[in-house]
Computed example of a mutant assay.
Amino acid sequence: MDPLQISPLAVQSLKEACARKLEGFILSGELKIGERLPAERALAQRLGLSRPVLHEALVDLAGKGLVVIEPRRGARIADFRTSGSLALLPSLLAYQEGALDPVFLNSLMEMRLVLEMETARLAAERRTLEQMERLQAHLRREAAADWGDAQTLTALDFEFHLLVAIASNNVLYPMILNSFEKVYTNLTGRFFTGVRGGAAVGEVWAFHAQLGQAVQEQNSPRAAEIMAAMLRHGEAYLRTAGAAAQD
């Protein structure tokens, strides 16, 4: 194949931009389950779109189980727990615009706890010497990092979890973690930004060091225990910060 014969770059259409905007309102909880959207004509005017473009975006959202379009009554926010489909998953994975709706956040935290306790346990059982060396080198990078640089801390934190998943030697676990990178780093970025280089950063790095030690010693129950404590530490902060923001 001629390497120059490539497809044109895709440009996000107005319909896609509209659907993404409305998705963000729903995933963040700004639009609540059961809430009815304004009439299409009025909503289109507010968004600066034509009514047909808005309608196409709503049809896409309906296909994901996010809205229900009712003839002569307009659209309302659907209960995604009963009507959502796998088509919704990419939107959730790509979400990086701020706080998640509490239902989505709870589900994500629960899923992450189950997944990463298992990756930590398997990493302690199966890690190779090369994987252990990479993990130790990463811990040295963390120790040298600027605690005030939230972006760097967020990237280092995700890489640590990914290295643990790789050390599990289950080929699917790192792929699953990579799929959730954007929404994970959205959460951890908020954590590192919120703590502003304070003692909480040292607490996270201490968890990482303890987990690295458990993996090195091939103590799988201890590795799973430390991973659980670390994830609950971050979850507690995010919930406290979220509650404070609502006050």
Rank of each mutant, 00 (worst) to 15 (best):
D2W: 06
L4F: 15
Q12A: 13
K15T: 06
A17P: 01
L22K: 02
I26R: 12
S28W: 00
G29T: 13
E30D: 10
R36G: 13
E40T: 04
A42S: 06
L43F: 05
Q45S: 10
L47R: 00
G48P: 11
R51Y: 11
R51V: 15
P52V: 07
P52S: 09
V59R: 13
V67P: 09
V67D: 07
P71D: 09
R72D: 08
R73T: 07
I77P: 03
D79V: 05
R81M: 08
T82S: 07
S83I: 12
G84Y: 03
Y95G: 08
Q96G: 13
A99H: 05
L100S: 02
S107P: 00
S107W: 01
L108Y: 07
M109K: 00
M111D: 03
M111K: 02
R112M: 01
M117P: 02
R121W: 14
L122H: 14
T128E: 06
E130F: 03
R134M: 04
L135H: 02
L135I: 11
L135W: 06
H138E: 04
L139N: 07
R141A: 15
R141I: 08
A143T: 02
A143V: 01
G148E: 03
D149I: 04
A150S: 15
A150P: 11
A150N: 10
T152Y: 01
L153V: 12
T154D: 03
D157F: 12
E159L: 10
E159H: 04
F160L: 15
F160Y: 13
A165I: 11
A165P: 03
S168N: 07
L172N: 12
S179Q: 05
E181M: 10
K182F: 06
K182N: 05
Y184L: 02
N186S: 08
L187D: 08
T188N: 13
F191P: 00
F192P: 12
T193Y: 00
T193V: 04
V201A: 02
V201P: 02
W205F: 15
A206R: 15
A206P: 05
H208Q: 08
G212M: 04
V215P: 04
V215I: 14
Q216W: 10
E217C: 14
Q218T: 14
R222E: 13
M230R: 10
L231C: 03
H233V: 12
E235I: 09
A236V: 11
L238C: 05
L238D: 01
A243R: 09
A245Y: 11
Q246T: 14
